[in-house]
Amino acid sequence: MMEDIARGIQDELSGKAFDGSLKFDCGEDGVIVLADNTASTTDQNTDCTLRLSRANLEKLLTGQLNPMTAVMMGKIKVSGDMGVAMKLGQLLG
């Protein structure tokens, strides 16, 4: 399932430049790492980590969950470089 989400993100990123690295950490469901303009499910250290449920990740990626609202409501926990997280919003928007 995480592989499917990673493929969808990869398609979104196609033709766009993403500086830095970012990890979606969905706990036991796994991780998706964006680095070097690729999306993978291989865990590694990143500039920024977003901790959230897989359900909220899917909502975030389909535009059903506003990233800023989700952070304020505690649905997404951000650690590391906030600037990287902000760039992601521009890419997926």
Results as ranks from 00 to 15, higher is better:
residue 1 M to H: 11
residue 2 M to D: 04
residue 3 E to Y: 08
residue 3 E to M: 11
residue 4 D to G: 08
residue 5 I to P: 00
residue 5 I to K: 00
residue 8 G to C: 02
residue 8 G to H: 05
residue 10 Q to E: 14
residue 10 Q to F: 06
residue 11 D to W: 12
residue 12 E to Q: 13
residue 13 L to T: 06
residue 13 L to D: 06
residue 14 S to P: 01
residue 14 S to V: 14
residue 17 A to T: 13
residue 17 A to K: 14
residue 18 F to H: 05
residue 18 F to T: 03
residue 22 L to C: 09
residue 22 L to P: 06
residue 22 L to A: 04
residue 22 L to R: 02
residue 23 K to H: 03
residue 23 K to A: 09
residue 24 F to C: 01
residue 24 F to T: 01
residue 25 D to H: 04
residue 30 G to T: 06
residue 30 G to N: 02
residue 32 I to C: 02
residue 33 V to N: 03
residue 35 A to K: 15
residue 36 D to A: 08
residue 38 T to Y: 09
residue 38 T to M: 15
residue 39 A to T: 04
residue 40 S to D: 04
residue 41 T to D: 11
residue 42 T to D: 14
residue 43 D to Y: 09
residue 44 Q to V: 09
residue 46 T to R: 02
residue 46 T to N: 08
residue 47 D to P: 03
residue 48 C to H: 04
residue 48 C to V: 06
residue 49 T to A: 11
residue 53 S to A: 04
residue 54 R to F: 11
residue 54 R to G: 10
residue 54 R to Y: 12
residue 57 L to Q: 09
residue 58 E to N: 04
residue 59 K to Y: 10
residue 60 L to F: 15
residue 61 L to M: 08
residue 61 L to N: 00
residue 62 T to G: 13
residue 62 T to E: 12
residue 62 T to Y: 05
residue 63 G to M: 08
residue 63 G to C: 07
residue 63 G to P: 09
residue 64 Q to C: 03
residue 64 Q to I: 04
residue 64 Q to E: 13
residue 65 L to N: 02
residue 65 L to I: 06
residue 65 L to K: 04
residue 66 N to T: 11
residue 67 P to H: 02
residue 67 P to I: 07
residue 69 T to E: 08
residue 69 T to G: 12
residue 71 V to N: 05
residue 72 M to H: 07
residue 73 M to P: 04
residue 74 G to W: 03
residue 75 K to M: 14
residue 75 K to I: 03
residue 75 K to V: 03
residue 75 K to G: 09
residue 76 I to A: 00
residue 77 K to A: 10
residue 77 K to P: 00
residue 77 K to V: 09
residue 78 V to C: 12
residue 78 V to Q: 14
residue 78 V to G: 07
residue 79 S to R: 15
residue 80 G to N: 10
residue 82 M to K: 10
residue 82 M to T: 11
residue 82 M to D: 05
residue 86 M to S: 14
residue 86 M to G: 00
residue 87 K to R: 09
residue 89 G to D: 06
residue 89 G to W: 02
residue 89 G to R: 09
residue 92 L to H: 00
residue 93 G to R: 12
